[in-house]
Design a protein around this nucleic acid. Structure first.
Length: 338
DNA sequence: TAATGAATAT
DNA sequence: TATATTCATT
C-alpha cells in the first residue's frame, strides 16, 4: 500500500506532460473579480512570464524596512527585466506582455526602482498552507523539498524561497509535535528544546491544515495518495479550463482576505498599506518549473472530478478551527459547473 | 551550477 | 512574529 508511493513517485516524473501544456499557467493571474475585490484598477498586463525570483539588488542593502509603494507597472517591469536578463524560455508563448499601462511617468515613485522593487511578503493563508501540506504529504517528508513542493502546489507567484521559508517553519512545527507526543526525545539531539511558549498563532495556522499522521511517525510508510487526491496540480487542470484558476496565490489571498475580514479582520494579504495603489501581488513564475505532470493523474482527476486541490482551497475556510466545513465561499473555479 | 537547510535579518 | 534573505554545504 504505502510502498507504492515510491513507484508512483518514480513514474511521476516520467509521466509529466510537456511544459508547453502547463504553460498556460503563467498567464494572467488575477481575474476581473479579484481585481475589483482588491481595487486593482489595471489587472491586465500582469502576466508575464516566468519571473525569476532573482532579486539582485545592490549588496549595499537597499532594503529599507519596507517599500510599501509598489506600482503594478513597476512589478511587471521587474518581471520582464528579470526574465530577459535571466533566461527566457522561448518555448513559451508569452502572450501577455509586461507592458502594463502606466509606467514610470506617472507621478509616483514608479520611476525605475522597478528593478529594485521587492514583492510584498507572502502571507500564508490557511488555504495556501493547506496546499502546502497536501503537497508535502503527497511527496513524503523525504522528498518534500522546496522546489518540488513549489511545483506541486502550482501556485502562480509562489517562489521556491517562499516555500523554503515556510517549510523550515513547518518542519520545526512537526518536530515540536513529535516531541510532544513522542515524548522523549531521546536523545538526541539536542534539538531544540521544547519551547514551552509554543506559539498560539503558529499553531493556529498549522492547525488549519491537518497534519498527516505519518508525518509525526517517521518510520512508518506513508499512506501515499492512493486514497486521496490523485494530485492534480492546478497547472494540469488548466488545460481544460484555462481561465479562472490562474489566480493562484493572488486568488487565494484575495478570497481569504475577504473571508478573514469577516472573521478575523486580518490585514490585507498584499497591496499597499498606505491605501494607495495596489500593485500586483505576484509575477508569474512557475513557468520554468513543472515539467511534465501526471497526465494520468489529471485524467483520473477529471474522471473523478472531485479530487482536486482546488476544492480544498475553496472550502478551506469553513470551519474555522477544526475543520470541517463545507461551505465554499471561495471560487477558484467552478467545479463541474462548466 | 543550483538547490537545500539552517541561521540570520527585517 | 512571520516571512525574507543570507550563508555554508552538498
Amino acid at each position: 500500500m504505502r510502498e507504492e508511493e515510491a513507484n508512483w513517485f518514480a513514474r511521476w516524473e516520467e509521466e509529466l506532460p510537456n511544459p508547453e501544456e502547463l504553460m498556460p499557467l503563467s498567464q494572467t493571474l488575477i481575474t476581473p473579480d479579484l481585481a475589483l475585490a482588491f481595487d486593482i484598477p489595471n489587472p491586465s498586463g500582469g502576466g508575464g512570464g516566468a519571473a525569476a525570483n532573482h532579486n539582485h539588488n545592490s549588496p549595499t542593502a537597499t532594503q529599507a524596512a519596507a517599500i510599501p509603494q509598489v506600482p503594478a507597472a513597476a512589478a511587471a517591469a521587474v518581471a520582464a527585466a528579470a526574465a530577459a536578463a535571466s533566461s527566457p524560455p522561448p518555448s513559451q508563448p508569452h502572450s501577455s506582455e509586461f507592458d502594463s499601462g502606466e509606467m514610470g511617468s506617472g507621478g509616483g515613485p514608479g520611476d525605475e526602482p522597478a528593478r529594485t522593487l521587492k514583492r510584498p511578503r507572502l502571507v500564508w493563508t490557511p488555504q495556501l498552507h493547506k496546499r502546502f501540506v497536501d503537497a508535502v504529504a503527497h511527496l513524503g517528508i523525504k522528498n518534500a523539498v522546496p522546489k518540488t513542493i513549489m511545483q506541486l502546489m502550482s501556485v502562480d507567484g509562489l517562489t521556491r524561497e517562499n516555500v523554503a521559508s515556510h517549510l523550515q517553519k513547518y518542519r520545526l512545527y512537526l518536530k515540536r509535535m513529535q516531541g510532544l507526543s513522542g515524548g522523549g526525545g531521546g536523545g538526541g539531539g539536542g534539538g531544540g528544546g521544547p519551547l514551552s511558549g509554543a506559539d498560539a498563532a503558529t499553531d493556529h495556522l498549522f492547525a488549519s491544515a491537518p497534519v498527516p499522521h505519518h508525518f509525526l511517525h517517521p518510520g512508518r510508510p506513508a499512506p501515499a495518495a492512493d486514497h486521496f487526491l490523485p494530485f492534480v496540480p492546478v497547472a494540469a487542470l488548466q488545460q481544460h479550463h484555462h481561465h479562472q484558476q490562474q489566480m493562484a496565490v493572488a486568488a487565494v489571498a484575495a478570497a481569504a482576505h475577504q473571508q478573514q475580514q469577516q472573521q478575523y479582520h486580518h490585514q490585507r494579504q498584499f497591496g499597499s498599506p498606505t491605501g494607495g495603489q495596489f500593485e500586483h501581488p505576484f509575477l508569474a513564475r512557475q513557468a520554468q518549473g513543472v515539467h511534465r505532470m501526471a497526465a494520468a493523474a489529471a485524467a483520473a482527476q477529471v474522471s473523478g472530478h472531485q479530487t482536486g486541490y482546488v476544492e480544498d482551497l475553496e472550502s478551506a475556510t469553513g470551519g474555522g478551527g477544526g475543520g470541517g466545513g463545507g461551505r465554499k465561499v471561495l471560487t477558484l473555479f467552478p467545479t463541474g459547473d462548466d
